[in-house]
Write a protein that binds this DNA or RNA. Structure first.
Lengths: 342, 342
DNA sequence: CTGAAAGCGCTTACAG
DNA sequence: CTGAAAGCGCTTACAG
């Protein structure tokens, strides 16, 4: 078995210099047509594959992007990562993905690892309590884009759903159905984007003089379910429930079933985050869709602009959420009157 | 702004040679305690970060693993990727993830890209028609593990659910409930692992002299739904439906709802692949859980053994699926008699 | 347009 | 145990 051929072997085979081979392979057009063809033929004959590690060392560009994400079991993040990978790959980049499991300590370690691996930039979805350490871990020389879990004042360009407006619109919709006592179930109150959702919700409620019932529920699906079962057993129940993300929605659906709360007759349900299976639940669940395609595209645009040193006009992108009405939301029933069986 | 410090700068700062710094940072124990401490202190003062690209070039080890996957929107693959990333990261490796979108052509290109990036090994979930080109694309020098979509005779070590047995057990369970006409809905008949599921299903059915009704449905959720709606409108309906993966399950649930087929009274439903939201459907859907944790662990073990040159006793791991019984499967109803409302 | 030389920042034998 | 030298496989000025 022969050792892998190097660029030098190709140069010998094609009877040209090393530098010429390099030029051809990098697509430099200042190479005579005849030499280029000889080089390409030699590459074919030797079945040559370029060593990008060597190229990166010398050129100081790895053409690699790090993606730091809490986890990819959350469908929203999986979708985001998939889109970003496609965009990066189309642009000649490879992605290194690291998950943090919401642990800031681990996030910091993993960020160091991919910095040592010389990524050209990082796209990060911060961990729950990790926004503060981000700037010191990433440093100021590294192109970086914050996605989804933005902070009040991000030191880097950022992209997210316009959370305030999306929550505002969601609340307005429920209010328009006649609901006055509406609960917003939230599991990550320390996150700035959750804070924005709460603020949008409260704004709409106060404008309509409604009863804004913000509930902090447990982090996981199970914990959220248990918290909400408590809420449903209270005397003065809300007539509509707005869940702040897909984990809470999963918990809420379980709780509604366990407590035999009829949706939408006894309680309307509106979810933040739309997913395939929401359509299949009975009744199908109304939701606010986050424009994940657009978020990924904008994030990649901000990243490539930074890498190539192009100016960025608006570094903080907020994309509009979209209300999708299905069967889980309905006009508030007159009390004591049922509109039908589930 | 100073340039990034190099190992040379650290050596100067600590008044030792470059080689000694390298030894300390690589954890080589043949360095005097005093020198080691001086080196570490110097690293701290300069805030030094190693350049792993340079290390990789010289040592010919990138400590990077490529993961090739059709997509990560499929929850099964997302889970697999997440577990593999955690295992790799714990072992000092970083993962490069590339998606193929089921296109063999793109898979080939992406495999070439990560080979040029000098990954130490690749873990691959082949694309639909990509098993044939795999060996030529990957080559024989690259450590490789095939996961999930194994072929009849894989040239590399492989890990998957024991599909034959899992489907056999699933069919046996439905048979034990009294069903005799059972449909297996399949959307990727060309895949070897699907072939195994069909074979296991047919074996159980023929042993019980049942009517094994294998149906090829469309690839996507929508297409599968439409195919199945056709099945449900036929005169001689099966009394139980076994779906061969999560996409088909999504389509099947939609079709059952649209055609108002009552589950489980008119038809039992058993899904291959278990997911969180199956528990929330009404009725909750029985499923065969694929041991994804175990699959990831075995895949990583096979990978690290290859990288370190350790022998592999059994290169083709088949992990047992697990039947989870919920509400969507029930004893076959006497014809004409309903057991209750949905 | 082409080639010879230097060098990216490390690790690896090897000499002392 | 420590250091000086060579070299991993490329890209990048620079000379011709």
């Amino acid at each position: 078995m022969r050792a892998k051929p190097t660029m030098n072997d190709v140069a010998t085979e094609a009877s040209v210099s090393l530098g010429t081979v390099s030029k051809v392979l990098r697509g430099d057009s200042t190479v005579a047509k005849e030499l280029r063809e000889r080089v390409l033929a030699a590459c074919g004959r030797l079945n040559y594959q370029r060593n990008r590690i060597a190229a990166s060392l010398r050129s100081r560009q790895s053409h690699t992007i790090g993606i730091i994400v809490p986890d990819i079991l959350n469908t929203f993040y999986a979708t985001l990562v998939e889109k970003l990978e496609n965009l990066a790959s189309a642009g000649g980049y490879t992605v290194m993905i690291v998950t943090t499991g919401e642990e800031p300590q681990r996030a910091r370690e993993r960020i160091d690892v991919i910095k040592e691996r010389q990524v050209d930039g990082m796209i990060v979805i911060p961990s729950l309590d990790g926004s503060d350490m981000l700037a010191s871990a990433i440093g100021s020389d590294m192109p970086c884009v914050i996605v989804d879990r933005i902070a009040a004042e991000d030191p880097y360009p950022s992209v997210a759903t316009d959370n305030f407006d999306a929550a505002y619109q969601g609340a307005r919709y429920l209010l328009s159905l006649g609901h006055r006592h509406i609960a917003l179930a939230v599991n990550t109150p320390r996150l700035w984007n959750t804070h924005e959702r709460i603020a949008g919700f409260e704004r709409a409620m106060s404008e309509a003089k409604g009863n804004a019932d913000v509930r902090i529920v447990g982090m996981t699906v199970e914990e959220a379910r248990i918290s909400l079962e408590g809420l449903f057993r209270e005397g003065e129940r809300p007539t509509a429930l707005f869940t702040s993300n897909n984990l809470v929605t999963l918990g809420a659906v379980g709780a509604l079933q366990n407590c035999r709360v009829e949706v939408p007759h006894e309680m309307s349900l509106l979810a933040f985050d739309d997913f395939e299976w929401l359509k299949l639940l009975q009744p199908a669940v109304s939701a606010i869709h986050q424009p994940v395609d657009q978020i990924a595209v904008e994030a990649w645009r901000l990243m490539s602009h930074q890498i190539s040193g192009r100016p960025i006009a608006n570094p903080h992108i907020r994309a509009a959420g979209q209300l999708i009405i299905r069967r889980s939301t309905a006009a508030r029933a007159e009390s004591g009157k049922k509109l039908g069986a589930i």
